[in-house]
């Protein structure tokens, strides 16, 4: 009797499996398409071109800079959202989540209206310092941060909310000042989530396209990241576009697989 029941339970419903396979196909089929189109023999030559090297370097620099910037301002933001009660906190939380749902192009346009040379803040900034953010690598970092930082904020905020505040209280009774508590208790205890948030942020930053091309434009070596290079190449040099796409998939996959342990545990 128990043996029979066990056997029945161990076989999942066929409909579910079929739908699951279909679900997986949504992810896998496009990748197969990419692999089928890959000019394997020319790949080394395609990937060592100057455009590719420039785009790869720029993507790495801008995504890592955006991740660092997110860490510097996003973690404190997450902390405030998790630990400080203030009127309108849910509105602020909504604002933080907004970049996740609005089209990145809209984000880029909004950045242009705010920080462009004629923008709300950009104009006085430009007059005071001569600084021009659009069409610069800093513009790329900013656009990418706008789109990617929410991943860090929500991950870290969730971890902080789940962290039993008694640990911090215990540290305080042991004589630890606020910074010591943060440094020796709070951050070490949310470290897995922090790492997961940083990885997600970085991965999103690496793939950002819409906000970047709208706010920072497209110039090889200065603002043309890998996704922009793919987009431009698609219309002129498809082999290079495919090679670049494959490169991005490989980088992202490598990082996500390498960190999957931490990633799963904290999400």
């Amino acid at each position: 009797m128990t043996g029979l029941r066990k056997r029945r339970v161990s076989r999942p419903p066929l409909v579910l499996v079929a739908l699951a396979v279909l679900g997986l196909a949504v992810f896998v089929v496009p990748l197969l398409g990419l692999l089928a189109r890959t000019p394997w023999r020319d790949l080394p030559a395609l990937l060592t071109g100057e455009i590719v090297a420039d785009a790869l370097r720029l993507s790495m620099v801008s995504s890592l800079a955006a991740t660092a910037l997110s860490a510097v301002v996003g973690v404190p933001l997450a902390w405030v959202l998790a630990r400080v009660e203030f009127p309108g906190r849910s509105i602020v939380r909504g604002l933080v989540l907004l970049p996740l749902v609005i089209p990145p192009v809209v984000g880029g346009a909004a950045l242009l209206f705010a920080l462009g040379r004629r923008g709300l803040i950009g104009e006085p900034l430009n007059q005071a310092t001569g600084l021009v953010l659009p069409f610069s690598t800093w513009g790329v970092v900013l656009a990418v941060t706008f789109v990617a930082m929410p991943f860090l904020v929500i991950t870290v905020e969730g971890a902080l909310r789940n962290l039993d505040s008694r640990y911090e209280g215990a540290a305080a009774t042991l004589g630890a000042k606020r910074w010591t508590v943060l440094r020796r208790v709070t951050f070490p205890m949310i470290a897995p989530s922090l790492v997961a948030g940083l990885v997600l942020t970085w991965a999103r930053a690496l793939g950002e396209f819409g906000a970047t091309i709208t706010f920072a434009g497209n110039l090889p070596g200065r603002t043309q990241t890998l996704p922009l290079a793919v987009f431009v190449a698609l219309e002129s040099d498809r082999d290079t576009a495919v090679a670049l796409s494959l490169l991005m998939v490989a980088i992202s996959l490598a990082v996500l697989v390498a960190l999957r342990g931490r990633w799963w545990r904290s999400l």
Partner: peptide, 21 residues
């Protein structure tokens, strides 16, 4: 001295019209 190569003419025109270029 090019600062950006926009994906199409309308995108370029928009940024000029906005005074960003």
């Amino acid at each position: 001295a090019v600062d950006t190569r926009e994906p199409d003419v309308r995108a370029l025109l928009t940024k000029i019209g906005a005074g960003e270029l």
